[in-house]
Design a protein around this nucleic acid. Structure first.
Length: 290
DNA sequence: AGGTCGGCCTGGCAGC
DNA sequence: TGCTGCCAGGCCGACC
């Protein structure tokens, strides 16, 4: 599932190919992709415009076109962008992009159809769109200890759920949440607001380090993620806990466990990441009061 | 207000 | 072998 490092990998790959090009054609084959906008409305808004910059915010790819037209593409679970040249049209092709150099046809492939394309017209609309959905990126200079302390202090959610909330921190998904918590030696069920200052500091560094390592490995390929040239990332070979249930922790040898936290498969070494003490349940026998 | 959970969607796989 | 049914999860909206 593409998270910040996977989306950044795609952005870095595509940017030199498409920046400065005119988007001569955008063909939306699956109308769901841009709902509630009709495919022809989207096409009309973007076609013929030059791509000034391919940017990224959180897990969104932001296509900055001339005239302050912004196309916001989200890959969700199974979305992939592939550079053309495929001999036969790939299955599950939802969108086709054509550029003025002719050679670089780009396809958006998405078996599960969760991926989306949305439009923001003007800079204010772009900021409103992103601001309503995303907190700071871990790489943002403003993502300092004071910022994270202020965020964590007021949350009663388990820290895993906290990390997955894009409105708080932009770009962390299930993989990097598990990996960061292991690096910080924090159990995913710990209540966020009860983390000690040293743990918040460790968490901040762990999130940044996990994402940096992910980018360096050019992302993780689990099911569907591919680079735009079809090549796979390698971060899955560096997982410390994620998807490693029943295998020994690389730090201490304890078998990695799989839990469900915030409805997500969650992998943890309960030696390196001690479980929060179970709340004491005071048993007073059957209630007498009516 | 803030946290949890179901729905969206389909490929893949366990189990019979 | 072939079918059924369940699981995966980012994000949103409904619910408590």
């Amino acid at each position: 599932m593409p998270e910040l490092p996977e989306v950044e990998t795609i952005r870095r790959h595509l940017a030199p190919l498409v920046e400065g090009r005119v988007l001569t054609g955008l063909e939306v084959l699956d109308p769901r992709w841009c709902e509630p906008l009709a495919p022809e409305e989207l096409t009309r808004a973007v076609e013929g415009r030059r791509l000034r910059r391919l940017a990224r915010r959180g897990k969104y790819l932001v296509w900055e076109l001339d005239g302050e037209v912004h196309l916001l593409v989200h890959l969700r679970m199974t979305g992939t962008l592939l550079v053309g040249g495929q001999s036969r049209p790939a299955a599950h092709t939802r969108v086709r992009f054509d550029f003025d150099d002719g050679a670089q046809r780009l396809v958006f492939i998405d078996p599960r159809r969760f991926g989306t394309g949305e439009l923001a017209l003007g800079t204010d609309a772009l900021h409103a769109f992103l601001g309503a959905r995303l907190g700071l990126e871990p790489f943002d200079p403003g993502f300092d200890l004071a910022h994270l302390r202020a965020l964590t202090r007021i949350s009663r959610a388990p820290v895993k759920a906290f990390l997955l909330d894009q409105k708080r921190i932009a770009g962390v998904g299930n993989i990097y949440a598990d990996e960061a918590l292991h690096r910080a030696r924090i159990h995913p069920l710990r209540v966020t607001g009860k983390l000690k200052p040293a743990q918040v500091a460790a968490l901040r560094e762990a999130v940044i380090a996990a994402l940096e390592d992910g980018i360096e490995a050019k992302g993780a390929t689990i099911d569907d993620f591919r680079h735009p040239d079809g090549v796979q990332g390698s971060f899955q070979d560096r997982f410390l806990v994620h998807l490693r249930a029943g295998e020994p922790c690389l730090t201490c040898g304890t078998l990695v466990r799989k839990l469900v936290v915030a409805g997500r498969g969650t992998y943890v070494c309960e030696t390196c990441q001690p479980r929060p003490r179970a709340r004491l349940v005071v048993t007073t026998g059957p209630r007498q009061r009516a």
